[in-house]
Design a protein around this nucleic acid. Structure first.
Lengths: 214, 214
DNA sequence: CCAAAATATGAGTGAGTACTCACTATTAGT
DNA sequence: ACTAATAGTGAGTACTCACTCATATTTTGG
């Protein structure tokens, strides 16, 4: 009557039809937008018949919403704890690089989420609470600690954390959303280095500090 | 046979059916996305019959492209020349505020352009060249001058200008794209103040400078 | 005022869409 | 090997959409 549940499986989303369809959906949705994509295309991309899709998802919209559960968590919710004794410069650069890697690996999903979050409030809420606020919170907490310890100047960590995120984000948007390398190709390493440099210089409490390299 | 052209008119896009339809299109497109919007809705919003739309635009796509000509220029291409003797702090804050006002006044158009630029390369190119690169160029030049004069540290102005833009942009995206004031309501004045502060502190060549307010 | 030109209308059309369902293929239990 | 349950299929269905066009209204010029 009901299929046996294997010990370790519970919700095996990593594999199987469902995952296969969601993977295809991310690709097609991100290329054409939700409204512009057709279920026929998704089926083709997934290598299944159109009807099969509706065995796993009642509606097209439900496919989109299917992305915010385990799927997103699996793709984007990795966490990093650099509770190290390394310098801020190193830690921040590492965090940023890690984040960028994650985004680049899932750029289709990210573009899709940002684009469609505008139009689907249910998607927006999940995306916000599961990904954005959580990520923002980590960086915010890090900065708040430094402010409290007096290492950083007394700047609102909610603003500072977002400012730093924004500095990096704009280069991702620039490249992945709009222009590719058509107008300017930025060197990622140099961008990160510069951004962290401006940020730390801007927020550190002044002490005898190293001068900027000429 | 052909209608008389009044002396000063040439292309009067500021008024008339065309403008009326474009205004409606911005509203509907930005709410539903290009694919999700229907010509019927646009017609209704514009207060004309559906057929009338196709008297002014051959296709739906052409309505979208109609937005990038004089329409965009008129809405977003205002320029500011703060060739002043005021302090950087004042100038930058003024520039940012001016830019934010412009964006807020045309937020529907901005959202639409950012969203649809992904899917329509013709729109993307116009938007990029007419708006984005031009705006970026102004700030870039400003910073480049300061770097050359030795006021700012030797930081790539292309990166620095975008970093500053990103710091501000993320708060606009945060509010207008995703969350409104649902999670955190930022005070615009404070955000600008803080961002400029971090940026200038981060990029200024060190001299006897005012300490951060406690 | 009138006719002719320009403009506006909205029911109609064909293409294309999300979704259904009667059917086929595969798998699992014995 | 047989059977029942499950999974997969793709042509068909009801509907929506961009776009057309015959007709109606407004504007123009004399």
């Amino acid at each position: 009557m009901n299929r046996k549940i294997m010990p370790g499986e519970k919700k095996r989303l990593t594999t199987g039809r469902q995952k296969q369809i969601l993977d295809a959906a991310v690709k097609v949705f991100s290329q054409k937008g939700f409204s512009g994509a057709t279920t026929k295309e998704i089926a083709k991309e997934a290598g299944v018949a159109e009807g099969t899709i509706f065995r796993y998802f009642k509606t097209k919209k439900e496919i989109l919403l299917g992305l915010v559960g385990p799927y997103i968590a699996q793709s984007l919710a990795e966490t990093i704890d650099e509770t190290s004794d390394k310098s801020d410069r190193i830690v921040l650069k590492a965090v940023i690089k890690n984040r960028l890697e994650l985004i680049k690996k899932n750029i289709d999903l990210v573009r899709l989420l940002i684009t469609e979050a505008q139009f689907h409030s249910d998607l927006r809420e999940q995306f916000t609470e599961k990904i954005v606020l959580r990520s923002a919170g980590l960086l915010e907490a890090f900065i708040a600690r430094k402010v409290q310890s007096g290492e950083y100047r007394n700047i609102d960590p909610r603003i500072a954390s977002r400012a730093l995120a924004g500095m990096v984000a704009i280069f991702v948007l620039w490249k992945e959303f709009l222009f590719g390398d058509k107008y300017i190709a930025f060197d990622e390493e140099e961008v990160i280095e510069t951004v962290v440099d401006i940020f730390l210089n801007g927020i550190l409490n002044k002490r005898g500090k190293e001068a900027a390299a000429q």
